[in-house]
């Protein structure tokens, strides 16, 4: 359990170091590796990485989630841009309530961030398993229908990643 969090924190810190310095000589990599290992050992065990599952299936789910997120970002931006450019601004806003099945805090954070980046939705508040979402073009204000419309497409991947 803890070994996994320490390992992931160390790897992340090492990659961050390589990206920031952009030098791949052995001396630089040794310094980065030692510091990353030190920081991972001290802070890794309590970090958010421990909520992550590390199985082949979850790594595949991360890849699918990133692709879905990118497609949704492009779609949402084009959608919102068309609404802004229209002569009379086309909006139909509402704050709706949706439910999530995710248990961990990190999973809910990832879900809220994904929702904020998708077509015309913005997470306004989270209370336990209920998310309150400002929807720029509300199609239905029913809890279950809104959940189907907004949450499901991310939740099914995030469930595999975070459990």
């Amino acid at each position: 359990m803890n070994v996994k969090a320490v390992f992931l924190t160390t790897i992340f810190g090492f990659l961050l170091w390589l990206g920031l310095t952009l030098q791949v000589d052995p001396y630089n990599m040794a310094i980065g590796g030692v510091v990353a290992l030190l920081l991972g050992g001290i802070f890794g065990a309590k970090s958010s990485w421990r909520d992550l599952k590390l199985t082949p299936r979850s790594i595949l789910a991360v890849a699918i989630w990133v692709v879905v997120l990118m497609i949704e970002i492009v779609r949402s931006t084009i959608d919102v841009m068309l609404r802004v450019i229209a002569p009379r601004v086309r909006i139909n806003p509402a704050i709706v309530e949706v439910k999530t099945r995710l248990k961990t805090k990190t999973g809910r954070l990832a879900l809220a961030s994904s929702i904020t980046l998708t077509p015309g939705t913005l997470t306004a508040d989270i209370q336990d398993d209920r998310l309150y979402i400002h929807w720029i073009d509300a199609q239905s204000t029913d809890v279950d229908a809104a959940t189907r419309e907004i949450v499901r497409k991310f939740e099914k991947h995030l469930e595999v990643i975070f459990g």
């Binding site: 806003p93 509402a94 704050i95 309530e97 209370q127 209920r130 309150y132 509300a138 204000t141």
Partner: peptide, 14 residues
């Protein structure tokens, strides 16, 4: 304030 065109506010009810 939310704009006048807002349809529903379920957070307020909550």
């Amino acid at each position: 304030k939310l704009s006048d065109r807002t349809v529903e506010d379920q957070l307020k009810d909550k």
